[in-house]
C-alpha cells in the first residue's frame, strides 16, 4: 500500500480534472463548429470586427506567463527560491495584463453596442448574433478560468515563500502550473477561431 502523499497520484488527479475542463470547453467548441458551418460568412464578418492587435497581444502575454510558470518549476527543482518567486510574480502580472486587455476590449464592444441582446445585434444578421454570443460566452468563461488560475498561482507563491514548496515537494506548484497551462492551451484555440477568421 502506497502512501497518499504520492506525487504521481496527485498529478494524475490533476490531469483527470484537466480532462473535464477540456470537455467543458469542448461542449462550446461543438457549438462553434456547428454554427461556423452554418454561418461561415457571418463568422468572417464578425471576426473582422474583433481587434487582431489585442488578440495577438493577449496571446503573447499568456505564452510568456506560461513560460514563466514552467521556468518557476525548474527553478524550484534547482532550489533557487528567489528566481521561482520572481517568475511566479511575473506570470501573475501577465495574468493581470490579460484581464485588463480583456476589459478594454469588452467595454469597447459594449460602447459600440455589441453585447448580448443589444439592439444592434438583434437587427443584424442572425449569424452575427451567434458569433458574438459565442464570443462573450467563451471568452467570459475563459476569463473566469484565468481568475481561478491566478488564485492558484497566488496560493503557490505563498507556499513557496513559506518554504512549504521545496525541491522535494512541489506537486502543488506543478498542479497549479498545469491548470495555468491549460488556460493558455484553450486560449491558443480561441485566438484563431475568433480573431483570425478574416
Amino acid at each position: 500500500m502506497q502512501s497518499s502523499s504520492d506525487h504521481e497520484g496527485s498529478k494524475l488527479g490533476m490531469w483527470l480534472f484537466l480532462y473535464t475542463e477540456i470537455m467543458l470547453f469542448g461542449g462550446l467548441f461543438v457549438l462553434y463548429a456547428v454554427y461556423y458551418h452554418k454561418f461561415t460568412d457571418d463568422f468572417i464578418a464578425g471576426g473582422q470586427q474583433l481587434d487582431t492587435f489585442f488578440g495577438t497581444l493577449n496571446t503573447v502575454i499568456l505564452l510568456i506567463s506560461s513560460f514563466a510558470v514552467a521556468a518557476a518549476i525548474t527553478a524550484i527543482q534547482n532550489n533557487s527560491k528567489k528566481i521561482a518567486i520572481i517568475l511566479l510574480g511575473s506570470s501573475l502580472l501577465c495574468g493581470f495584463l490579460f484581464l485588463i486587455n480583456k476589459y478594454i476590449e469588452w467595454s469597447h464592444k459594449f460602447e459600440v453596442g455589441i453585447y448580448p441582446n443589444s439592439e444592434k445585434l438583434l437587427e443584424s444578421d442572425p449569424g452575427l448574433n451567434i458569433f458574438f454570443g459565442l464570443y462573450y460566452v467563451i471568452t467570459g468563461l475563459h476569463g473566469v478560468h484565468i481568475i481561478i488560475g491566478m488564485a492558484l498561482l497566488v496560493w503557490s507563491l505563498v507556499r513557496v515563500k513559506s518554504n512549504h514548496i521545496t525541491d522535494q515537494n512541489y506537486v502543488l506548484l506543478e498542479n497549479a502550473g498545469l491548470y495555468w497551462h491549460l488556460v493558455d492551451l484553450i486560449w491558443i484555440f480561441i485566438f484563431p477561431l475568433f480573431y483570425l477568421i478574416l
Binding site: S66, F67, V69, A70, E174, G177, L178, H181, L182, D184, L185, I188, F189
Partner: peptide, 12 residues
C-alpha cells in the same frame, strides 16, 4: 502545433 508544444514541454 502550438498546443502540442505547450503540452510536451511546459506541461511535461
Amino acid at each position: 502545433t502550438k498546443a502540442s508544444l505547450v503540452l510536451m514541454f511546459f506541461m511535461h
